[in-house]
Structure formats: structure tokens, C-alpha cells
Write a protein that binds this DNA or RNA. Structure first.
Lengths: 211, 211, 211, 211
DNA sequence: AATGAATGAGAATTCATTCAT
DNA sequence: AATGAATGAATTCTCATTCAT
């Protein structure tokens, strides 16, 4: 009743449905989530969902699309403030961890649910994810150009090296029930990424072999 | 051989059903796969599947259980032949890549489908995956003891660093339609893991900061 | 009104489904009745049934529960009008016969279908049936207290004697295709119940033996 | 030789299957009994049942047919020894109760399971049951001719009066878990059947009304 | 004759989506 | 715009029956 009528009521309702969908997908998984669960949590009727979204798939796609866009924008803004390549790199890692820390349900959906489902979803995912991977790639390339990262590495591999580690770290944290503070992993991860596993002698030996 | 798991004579049929399930789950995903699809591909009647497996979930669990066991055994056997820590590490990476290369559909199921579904599946997954992560952990610890890897790193993090990267690399390869030869990535990944991203000066700088 | 049992508005639909279930169960028996038969007869979609009833079992239970309740209430109301014990007894018999006469399909379900099925159904049946048997018992006890019925008879046996006869008479009538008017049996049954089979001399002889 | 079906090993197997069917039907009910349950209990393979019986229905029919025949024969033999009408009547009741007492599982099947199922089963039941009801009728008619039972009663009603009561008494006893000795009910039932419920004055009054 | 693995028709139930109100 | 009762297509699983061995 006290709700204002007008055009923002629409987008408020849309927002509520989307947030509810994130929660329900996070808890039950996409296929086991019922549209009526989402409706109940959003406080709307089942049918109302179809005024804002084409179908159930569209809900998942919209989550991905809109949240990913928000994240990309936020990340680019944050990175714009940093000029030093190493600082930019740290910033990226810290934001990735902080982001999932702040929205753990979103984390569950993006990490777990989007890993599945129909072909078209997979295709879709690739496109959107590419933006994020490209961002990682840019930061690394900057580092190479500023001379803080090695230049002899295939960028495509480095992107996955970084993204895969972050991804696995977050997945583990989600599946383990989020038992600790994700952001504390920023420095250890920086160390791992930058220095690698090897001790100096071994690195030299390995470098010699590959040369 | 220590074969005979099942109660049923024709364990060829069991094998055929399991293989068909891997294919169908890989192609459609668990929830969109129909039991009758699996039956048709296996060349048996729908009902026959229920002579060998309790239900559809049991199919997925059995794939995971049996394939993961095979993989773990194979890996441990292979690693037993190597004594040098760096060689063992390379062996692990090479086998991970070669394994998925050889069974790409299995890769899809293990990489994509098992990332989802019901809670109990997630629990289940954790247990079995732990074996693999433990194997990775052992190899790294050996490396630390033999003095080829740094000893100041939290093992839990290193495991995810390696596993996450391999995982992401394989996932990308699967989702991209397996366009190249996975095993060619063995050396570049070794290089990345061991040397990290940084150039010497930066590494020194970073090490100084964290000291 | 003290109506609203269900959560659903259209309680006409609930009624139609229940009536259809009575018909179909009566015709085919519980296990051979298909839910879709009931839906078709009720003029609703299969799924609609599940908006009003938990499952197929629940349909049978609901029939029993609701119809039995109605019957018990109706009987108690009718009996409340009669004070003379013999009149009450006749009233009970007449109503039992008239009731099934009026709802022959209900008779078939209550007489035939509820005699079977799962353990829990049997348990259930016992509880509800007890109310009816208790009613019979009360009427007989009144008769004993008013001195119109013998007082040397175990009530538990008398109840079954009366109920069993009525039950068998109705069952036969149902299974024979309802070829005659049930209510015409009221007086002959009264006679049988009250006077028994024996001629006076035999009664005396038997009484002497048991004394 | 006597059987004419072949060697007695066969008919032993047939017997074992039939006995198993009685047990399983008694425990689970016809529709919820699985043929494989019966096979397991009989110690034969599923398929073997179909060498002796046409199908599952045939098992139930055979139980009824053969057991009912045995009972009818046994009853006629026993009744042949008695000449006094009242003694014959007591004998009938006592045997009915003793029979079910001795074979409680058979009681459950005949009392509960045969009350249901398909039309054709009901038809079938009527035919077979008729023999038993006819037997009851004969005994009563003898009593009427010997002047120990009233002659103004419709025989069809008297049969159901007796059968219904016995039936209900046995059903109750079966469903209650057979808590007491059925045969102890012989005399009380005789009393009820012969003397009825009424006290002499009431009987006179009722007789006057109906005259 | 006996077996029991295999069959596949059949049925209950779910739930995304629609549409009359 | 919002509702939510109604829909009915879709899918898993069961089990009586068959038939190759």
C-alpha cells in the first residue's frame, strides 16, 4: 500500500524478482529451483514473473548479464584509479575476492549454476565471461609493458592461470560454507602468481631446459 | 582380476550403460538428459538400466565414483615411477591433460555436470575430489622437502592454485569444442607454476614488501 | 459458514473431483482406477487434482473421511428425534439401507474398496469405522436399558451381528447390480434381529442348555 | 496317477507357489504383491510361476477356487454326520470359525483381497461364494423342515444374516491381528442367531405389528 | 522343466507457462 | 498491471511377462 505507484514500481518489482532468483538458484540450483519458489520469495504471483522475464532461462541469463555487467563496470572504474601495474593486479584480485565475499549467493550462482545447463547457456556464458577474461588480460599486458611481468608467456594461458585459481579458490570457499574471510587471500595469491612455486635454483634449471 | 562389482552376469551391459550415460550427460547435461536417451544409446530397454543402477542420480554418482577411482589409481601408479620432485610434478600435469584429452566426454561430465545438482552431490563430490587434491598436495610437499619448491606457501592454497588452473584450462578447452591438443600445454604450465609471472626485479620488490 | 475446508476458492471443483473419484473407484476399484480417468470424468486436467489432493491415496482417504463424517452426523441427527428404543433401532437400519440406496456408488467404494489396500488404510479404516459401530452399540445399549433388548449379550458381538448383516446385505445388493429396493428389507431385518431364527420351543431348549 | 498332471515334483512346486501366493497376498494385498515376492517365497524363479499359472490373476482365482472347493467338501462331509438340525447349524458355525482360525492367512485373502479387484473377479467370486451360501441355506431349510427354525423368513435374507455376521466377526478378528480364539464365539453366536436380540414382550409386540 | 535377465507398456506426479478475472 | 488456478506435456520408475539358455 505504502509503495509508490508509478514507473519505478515496475523496476523495483523486476529487481525483487531478480534478487529472489539469485537466492533460490543459489540454494537449490537452476533445475531444482521452482519458478513458484522465486515468486514467493519475491512476494509476487507466479504469473507476474512472466511480465518481466520471458521464461525461466531468461531469469538465469538476466542474472548473469546484469550482474556481470555491473561487476565489469565496477572493476574498470576501480582499475582506472591505479596506474602502477602491480597495484592494478593486486586491485583486480582484491576486488574479485571482495565481490564474492559481499554477494555470496551471487557467487554460488555464477560459480556453480552457470557451469551447467543447456548448450545455449554455455555459448552464452562464453561471450560474457570473455569480457572478464579480457580485463584480466589487459591488466597482465599492462604489466608486461611496464616490465613487471615476464613477456614470454602466452596471454591466453596466463588469463586462465589467474582466473582458474581465483575461481577455484572462490568455489571451494562457497562449497565449504564460506568459513573464512576471502580477502585475506589477496597477498598470498599475489605472491603465488608473481613468484611461482619454485626456488631460485630450480627456476634457473627449468629455464635452462626450456631455453 | 578384481572385476566383479555387480550382482549381474552381463557386466558388459553395465559398462555400456555407464558409457552411454557419460555421453548423454556430457551432451545434454544431467537434468536435461532423459533416461530413455541413455537406454537407447546403450542399446537396452529403459527398465534394464534399473537392474544395474538404483536411479538416475545413481548413474551420475557411479560415473564419478568409478572413473575417479580409476584415475586416482592410474595417477598414483604413474607417479610411483618417478622419484625426482620436478619430474613428478610434470608427470601429474601431463597426466591430467592427457587423461581429459583421451576421454573428452568424461571431461565434460566431471568438469561441468558434477559442479551442480543436489546438495548431497556436492557433499559427495567434495569427498572424492579430496583424494585428487591430496595427491596434488603430496607432490608439492615432496617438492618442498626435496628443496625444489618454496616452503613458505600454505599447501591448501597451492593445491587450489594448481588444480584451479588445470581445471579452468580443461573447462575452456571442453567448452571451446576441444580445438587443440591439450598436452601441448604441459611445459608452458610448468613454467607458469614454477616461475610465476614476475620478472626478477619485481619478485624481489614484492618479497621485500611481504617480509 | 463453517464451510471452507480447502485453501482453494473453487470448492465446486474439489467436490466434482471427489464425486468423480467415487464413481471411478466404484467402477474399477482403487488400484485399477487411473488418476486421468478421474480427471476426465471431473472435467479437469490431471494436474488439477493435485491442487486439491496430495495424491491418489489422499483421494480415497478423503472420500472415506468426508462421506463417513457426513453419514455419522446425519445418523446422529436422525436418531436424536427418536426416543423409543425399538424405533431408534428401526431408524438406524432404515437409514443405513436408505443411505446406500441413495448413493450406490459410494456404497461400492465404502463396501468394497476400503476393504483392501495398504496397512495404513486398514488402520485408518478401523478408527473411522469405530464411530459407526459405536453408534450401533449405543442404540443397542439404549434398548437394553429400556428393557426391549436382552441384557445378557456381549455388546461387541451384537454390534458385529448387526453391522455384518447390514454390510453383507448391502454388498450383495451392490454386487448383484442393485436389482431391488434396499429399504424394503427394513422390516424383515428388524424381525430377524429381534426375534432371531428359532421357534419358541427351540429357543427354550437352547436357553436351557446354555443356562 | 491320482493327479494326472505328471510327477508329484511338479505338483509340489505348484502347491508351494500357491501357498506362497496366499502368504504374500495376505500380507500385502493383491495389487501390491509382486510376482517376484511370491517366487522368492516359493523358492522358484519368477518365470517358473508362469509354467503353472496363466498370470497373476490366475493365482488369486486358483487360491479361491481350490481352497473354497476344499472347504466346501470338508464342510459337506462334516455336516453329513449330523442329523439334528440345531446340531448341524452349530457344526456349520463352528467349522467356519475353526477353518479361519486354522488358516489365518487364507482368511485374510478370502476375507479382504477377494472383496476387490476387477469386475470379472467379482463375477467369479459370486459363483463360488454361492456354493457356500447354498450350504448355509440348506442347513437353515433343514431346520425349518424339522421345525426348529421359523418358516416365515425369506431364505435369501437368512443366508446373508448368518454369513454376514460370521464374515464380519472373522474380518474384525483378522484386521485386529487375531487376538483371541475364534471358536469361543460359537455358542454366543448360536444364541444370537436363534434367539435374536429381543426380550419376549418386545418380540410379541413386534410380531403383532408385522402380522 | 527351470531360470532370471531383459523387456517396455503404463501410470503417477511435477511444474513451467498461460489466461480469464 | 497483477493474479494464481488451471493446464497438460513430459519423465522417471515399476513390474508382469517373455524367452534364450
Amino acid at each position: 500500500m505504502a509503495e509508490g505507484r508509478g514507473n519505478h514500481r515496475n523496476s523495483d518489482k523486476r529487481r525483487r524478482i531478480l534478487d529472489a532468483a539469485v537466492s533460490v538458484f543459489a540454494e537449490k540450483g537452476f533445475f531444482q529451483a521452482r519458478v513458484s519458489d522465486i515468486a514467493r520469495l519475491a512476494g509476487v504471483a507466479d504469473g507476474t514473473i512472466y511480465l518481466y522475464f520471458k521464461n525461466k532461462d531468461d531469469l538465469l541469463i538476466s542474472i548473469f548479464e546484469e550482474k556481470m555487467k555491473e561487476i565489469n563496470v565496477k572493476f574498470r572504474d576501480a582499475l582506472a584509479c591505479e596506474k602502477d601495474a602491480l597495484a592494478r593486479f593486486r586491485c583486480l584480485i582484491a576486488m574479485h575476492l571482495a565481490g564474492f565475499q559481499a554477494y555470496p549467493e551471487l557467487a554460488a550462482v555464477l560459480q556453480v549454476e552457470l557451469r551447467q545447463s543447456s548448450r545455449f547457456m554455455r555459448e552464452y556464458k562464453k561471450v560474457e565471461l570473455k569480457n572478464y577474461l579480457d580485463l584480466v588480460g589487459e591488466v597482465v599486458r599492462d604489466g608486461q609493458q611496464q616490465g613487471v611481468f615476464r613477456q614470454d608467456l602466452p596471454l591466453s594461458l596466463v588469463k586462465r592461470f589467474i582466473f582458474g585459481t581465483l575461481d577455484e579458490v572462490v568455489s571451494t570457499w562457497v562449497l565449504a560454507g564460506r568459513p573464512y574471510d576471502l580477502e585475506t587471500l589477496t597477498e598470498p595469491l599475489m605472491d603465488l602468481f608473481v613468484n611461482g612455486l619454485g626456488v631460485p635454483e630450480v627456476k634457473a634449471r627449468l629455464a635452462g631446459m626450456n631455453a
